[in-house]
């Protein structure tokens, strides 16, 4: 089956057709009756869909590449070690052997109320967010007016930090390319969808620019293995020959429905060297604008310390590069 054949099969099956990769999240969604498809179209065997290859100026990762393939790939480890680390530490080894890049980006949030048959929450088109007054220790600290579930994707923040682009193929062969940053929808922007894929569109591949971006990833979780992050941080910076930052992104995960850019930190880093003072100040402002809930104020402090850890990792790489 080709991409176009998959798109045609999905179009024929409308409404009620759904595309699947490994189906890891899809099983849960079926059991939770969040999706009730009449037809599922597997994209796993599309030729080339799992390929990872370096071209002149980008590293291209097919959307059906598994997390373990991404974690182990020499070019990924060389160009985007933060991505290899995020892919290689998500979920468990058995899940990483099956779960795909597209599935990681498009999986639905893990909020217990969203996943519960008993709770017709905002994200399922219902009237209220049960987490606002309920269990929300692991929920959002930014954009917390409505649905406060967080994005479950660990690769999203890293790809945003790397300024990656995503290629989407639509009905009739139409395709579009957008920054990964634009793929994600804020809860306040759209309470029922997490990614900006329209009906009949498929995520085909992600391209990472080979721009010499120094990158690092840090994840904070309760258990050392097979656990969701409380907070994760991805940083990508470019430096000149003196070690001065000429551009940089600091992106937080597990704190909002989108990979959340710490713009205040980014501003502070620009045109500076990563000294102790810069790292401390950058970490201090990383949670600017946070509006935590009753029981997740701890995440604000975790954001600050996780950003400091990540910037220190970046400094070690910069020191080695100069």
């Amino acid at each position: 089956m080709s991409w176009d054949e998959a798109l045609a099969a999905l179009a024929d099956g409308e409404p009620g057709a759904i595309a699947k990769g490994a189906g890891i999240d899809l099983w849960d969604l079926l059991k939770e009756e969040i999706v009730k498809p009449d037809l599922m179209v597997s994209l796993l065997n599309i030729p080339g869909a799992k390929d990872i290859a370096k071209s002149d100026n980008t590293l291209v990762i097919g959307s059906m590449a598994t997390l373990q393939m991404i974690a182990d790939h020499t070019d990924v480890i060389q160009v985007a070690p933060s991505l290899a680390q995020a892919a290689g530490s998500a979920a468990s080894p058995a899940i990483r052997n099956a779960a795909t890049l597209a599935g990681n980006l498009c999986q639905r949030p893990r909020c217990g109320y969203f996943r519960s048959l008993l709770h017709p929450c905002l994200r399922k088109g219902g009237g209220r967010c049960f987490a606002q007054d309920g269990h929300h220790q692991n929920h959002a600290i930014f954009d917390t007016e409505g649905c406060i579930a967080t994005s479950a994707s660990s690769l999203g923040p890293v790809l945003v930090a790397l300024e990656a682009m995503v290629s989407v193929r639509g009905p009739g062969g139409a395709s579009r390319t957008l920054p990964v940053e634009k793929l994600f929808l804020m809860a306040s922007q759209n309470p029922t969808r997490e990614v900006d894929l329209r009906t009949g569109e498929l995520l085909e591949r992600v391209s990472i620019p080979l721009a010499g971006t120094i990158n690092a990833y840090h994840k904070v979780r309760a258990r050392d293995g097979f656990d969701w992050p409380m907070v994760e941080v991805a940083v990508g910076v470019r430096i000149d020959s003196r070690g001065i930052i000429t551009s940089g992104r600091v992106v937080l995960g597990a704190v909002a429905m989108v990979p959340w850019r710490a713009f205040e930190t980014e501003k502070l880093l620009l045109n500076t060297k990563l000294t102790n003072d810069v790292i401390r100040k950058g970490a201090d402002v990383a949670a600017a604008g946070a509006r935590p809930l009753r029981d997740n104020r701890h995440k604000v402090d975790i954001v600050r310390s996780a950003v400091r850890e990540t910037l220190e990792k970046v400094r070690r790489i910069v020191d080695g590069a100069l």
């Binding site: 490994a22 189906g23 597997s42 796993l44 080894p93 058995a94 899940i95 099956a98």
Partner: peptide, 24 residues
């Protein structure tokens, strides 16, 4: 997919067989 009791090898790789549709 939480406990690993159903792990089998598919094309040499360990996966959770409770999360794999037979068609795959």
């Amino acid at each position: 997919g939480e406990c690993g009791a159903c792990t089998v090898l598919v094309d040499g790789l360990p996966i959770n067989s409770c999360l794999v549709p037979f068609g795959q």
